[in-house]
């Protein structure tokens, strides 16, 4: 059974239909890419799946359960993590604290645990710190743990965003343009990080414009154009698809 099922998803902003009757599913363990020209509705898809926007119509099923109406934080706690197209960090906090905040959903300590520094508080703090270091290590920025997130290089910030997303061990990670703004020589390393995420058991869905990266990484590709799904298939199938070539590839990788 697929991990996430998107069924006839539609999202309108006033008169603009950003996502129009789109259906696809994400297979557990696979890397799926969503591609399409600017304004195709890729980020909007992510925003609806993760609960930022309510769907206008359509349904979302995660592990068989209907998550369409769940609020943001509840979607995250089900095991769906995401990064943002414009890298979102807790900019004035250290990289380590960023990752620790990402682990909060796995901890239960509340106000009275804080006041009394209960054994649970201390255990969960230790646990959060360990997982945070592990996530930073995985993302390759352990040496920057004490640095303020906002002062990291663009490239390191992208890695930190991934560390924040995976620290609580979600089942599905949505990456919105993970290599945008990353310089050419760093790109391969980012690709390698995404491949490693998949090997580590995360189901990955990414939105990306860099076609060579997408073609190299993705098991399946979904193509959006003007809010509609115009194609879906393996990289080879997509490359051979006339509609895709016309809508997108023709201009992007001529």
């Amino acid at each position: 059974m697929s991990l996430l099922e998107v069924k006839s998803l539609t999202k309108r902003f006033g008169g603009l239909t950003a996502v129009n009757d789109v259906s696809f599913s994400l297979e557990a363990g696979a890397i799926t890419a969503i591609i399409g020209p600017n304004g195709a509705g890729k980020s909007t898809c992510f925003n609806v799946i993760s609960g930022f926007y309510a769907a206008t119509s359509g349904r979302l099923f995660f592990e068989g359960a209907d998550i369409t109406a769940l609020p943001l934080h509840a979607v995250a706690r089900r095991g769906i993590a995401r990064t943002f197209q414009t890298t979102a960090l807790f900019a004035n906090h250290s990289a380590l604290d960023n990752a620790i905040a990402g682990y909060r959903q796995r901890t239960r300590s509340g106000f009275f645990d804080a006041l009394l520094r209960t054994p649970r508080e201390r255990r969960e703090e230790r646990e959060a710190r360990e997982h945070a270091y592990e996530a930073l290590r995985f993302a390759g920025i352990e040496s920057s743990a004490a640095r303020i997130a906002g002062s990291l290089s663009q490239e390191a910030q992208k890695r930190l965003a991934i560390a924040i997303a995976i620290v609580a061990r979600p089942k599905l990670v949505l990456l919105d343009e993970p290599v945008a703004g990353v310089s050419g020589d760093q790109m391969a390393q980012h690709g390698e990080l995404i491949a490693r995420m998949s090997q580590a058991g995360f189901t990955v869905c990414l939105v990306e414009h860099k076609m060579d990266l997408v073609m190299g990484l993705a098991d399946r590709i979904v193509v959006l154009h003007h809010g509609r799904k115009i194609a879906e298939g393996t990289p080879a199938e997509i490359r051979a698809d006339d509609a895709v070539v016309e809508a997108y590839l023709g201009t992007a990788v001529a």
């Binding site: 979102a88 960090l89 807790f90 900019a91 004035n92 604290d97 909060r104 924040i164």
Partner: peptide, 15 residues
Amino acid sequence: LALASNEDLAASVGI
């Protein structure tokens, strides 16, 4: 502190 720093991100990590 996390939600003060970035509310969207805080919500997206399950807070």
